[in-house]
Each structure stands twice: as C-alpha cells, then as structure tokens.
Simulated assay, not measured.
Amino acid sequence: MINRLFFMLVLVGVPLSVAGSLLHWSQTLMFGVYCLTIVSLASYMGRATESLAIVSGPRIGGLLNATFGNAVELIISIFALKEGLTEVVLASLTGSVLGNLLLVAGLSFFIGGLKFKRQEFNVYDARHNSGLLIFAVIVAFVIPEVFSMEMQIDETFHLSVGISVILIALYLAALFFKLVTHRGVYQHKTDEVEEHEEPEWGKGKALGILAAATVAVAYVSESLVHTFETVAHSFGWTELFIGVIIVAIVGNAAEHASAIIMAYKNKMNIAVEIAVGSTLQIAMFVAPVLVLISLLFADRLPLVFTMPELISMVTAVFLTITLTSDGDTNWFEGLTLLAAYLIMGIGFYLL
C-alpha cells in the first residue's frame, strides 16, 4: 500500500512540479509539492538500492544506499550553492550528520527493537567507523573553525580546500580498505543472515530506475531551492532551520526509509552501514566535493560551521559511538538517539 502511495505521488508530483515551475504557481504551495515529489522519488531509489544490496552483500549494499541517498543531498546543495545560499548548504550538511546518526539510526534501532529484543551487527565495522567518525566530524570540521579565528576569509577557504582534498583521499582509502584489501577479514556471525533473499527488481531494472529517479530529482531540486527564501519569510523560519531540518530530511529520505526497512527485517549490518556510512560519506566526500565545486561559483564554501552546529555534530558522534561500540542495540537505545535529535531540532527552530 505504501509503495502504491509513492507511485501515485511520483505520477502526480512530477507533472505538477513541471507545471508549477512553468506557470509560476505559489512558491509556498510548490515547496510542499517539491518536497513530497523528492521523497517519493527517493523511495524508488531506496527500493532499487535495496534490490542491488541483496545481490551485492551488506557492505556494498549499505554503500550503495548511502551513495544514492546522498546523491539527492548533493544535487540540492549544488543548486543552493549556485544561488549563493552557503548557509543553507552548511546547515544541510549539519542536518545530514544529525539526521543519519540520530534520526535514521534512532528510528532503525527503535522500530527494529520493537520486533526483536536484541539486534546484533558487525562490531568490527562499528569500531572502524567510530574512528572515522571522530576524524571526519571532530578533526576535519572543528580544526577549520579553530584556525579561522586567526585567519582572513581567503586563508580560511584555502585551508578548507586543503582539508577537502585530504578528506576525499582518506575516504577513497577507507573504501579500498573495506572493500578490497580487508574484505571479509573481519567477519561476524550476523554477516551470514538472509543471504538467499530474492531482490524485488533485477539488476538492470534497478539501475534504470535509479538513473531515471536521479534525473527527476535533479530537476525538482533546482526548483525547490528557488522556494527557500519565500518559504522562510512565510513561516518565519531561518535558513539554518531550513537547512538543518527540512533540506536534510527531504534530501536523505531514501536512506531514511531503507535503513528502517532493513532494521525491521533484522538486517542490522546494512541498517548501521546506511546510517553511519552515509554520515561518513557526507563528512568525508559530499562536504569536501561541495567545497571544491564552490570554486566554480561566486560564493565560496569554507568548512566553517556555527558553534551550535559543531557542538551538535560532536555530541551526535560521541552518543552514537557510545551506543554502537558493543555491536548490539535495542529499542531504548533508539529512543535515546531520537530524544537527542528532538532536543537539537527544538534548539535550531528557536535559534
């Protein structure tokens, strides 16, 4: 029934998005249409990557989910950069980190925990990802903030470019480590769960749907960005709130749905890989790529976040590491992550 609903939203939302853009309908109305359309398109991306995940295994499957889920975020951010909305872009990166670590992981642990009293995942992957989380969020994001206090704007951006190159190189090295040189070295008994499940779609169909959905998302995302200023004025929202909460949730809808579905099926390796892997990809690949892409636009994007953003991300990292370092989870740990997300959401709304 949910799949039918998303199908109807795509069937109606895409033509409405095109018509609304061409006929200049109310931007507040179109903001809602664009968001629903992107979420419904993201659901198809999620189902396609889930099919590919069954064929590829939990690690590569989780990586695929994170990659195509973050493709939406990257597309929206590029159009926002083009419009000079650097604060929205930085806020959306913050929202993605918070959303993946607290909202996605929290909902996955909570919903999966309601069905299973205890859910296990690969503790070796969790420990490996913990180190990368500390590096990506705390080292790579906090350092520019500290040094920028004694630097000019141009020097801060040059520092951001250097850090971005290092982040991308380390992220690629991490993928090479996990998928090539040490693939299968750190096995866990939960890696053997549900190996024989049949994918919903074949490989070719899944890839075709991914490509079509990505093109559609790119078109709708460009229109969505143009509504931010009007919507912010209409509802009294700040650019910070739009980026941290609205854009992050809409942009990451694909992996939100996929991770929760995987947790409900007790496929916790994939669920954790989506939530944490997506965070690492945002911090170590998407953010640095956006810094480099901003070289093409008038407004540059330094990796300098506000203090509330930094403290929220650091808190989310330490809370996630604390709850996942033992390799198992339950519904109460999920509820703890969700509570932290709600507290931060209220703070950003009132800020």
Rank of each mutant, 00 (worst) to 15 (best):
I111K: 09
L280P: 06
Q187V: 01
T67N: 02
G327S: 14
F176R: 06
Q187M: 08
V89G: 01
L292C: 13
V104C: 06
T37N: 03
A91S: 09
L133T: 08
E145P: 01
I134W: 00
V217L: 15
S164N: 10
I249E: 01
V231Q: 02
N122R: 14
L22G: 05
E145G: 12
N70V: 09
L210M: 02
G208Y: 12
G32S: 00
W331I: 11
R300T: 09
F176V: 03
F157T: 13
D154F: 13
L81P: 00
G204D: 03
A275V: 03
F235T: 06
N100D: 12
A263F: 06
I138M: 05
V244H: 05
T238W: 06
L337Y: 01
S26F: 09
L101W: 03
V142K: 11
L52E: 05
M284F: 01
S325W: 10
N330R: 08
R118E: 07
L224T: 00
V97G: 01
V165R: 10
I168Q: 04
F110R: 05
L22E: 08
E198I: 09
E333Q: 07
L63Y: 13
I78N: 14
V142G: 15
F121M: 15
G236P: 04
A173S: 15
L290Q: 09
L240Y: 03
L224S: 02
L64R: 00
E198L: 07
L310K: 11
M262Q: 06
I343D: 02
M307R: 09
S77N: 13
S221P: 02
G334L: 15
A48Y: 09
Y186A: 10
L63M: 15
K117Q: 12
T49A: 14
L133I: 06
E222Y: 07
G204Q: 07
W201Q: 10
H256A: 04
A105N: 08
I346A: 04
R59G: 05
N330H: 11
L22V: 11
L159N: 14
V139I: 15
S223E: 14
S17H: 08
K189F: 13
F6R: 14
A206M: 13
R47C: 08
V33H: 00
S278D: 10
L159K: 11
R183L: 11
V250C: 09
G277K: 13
S221I: 12
S40I: 09
S21H: 01
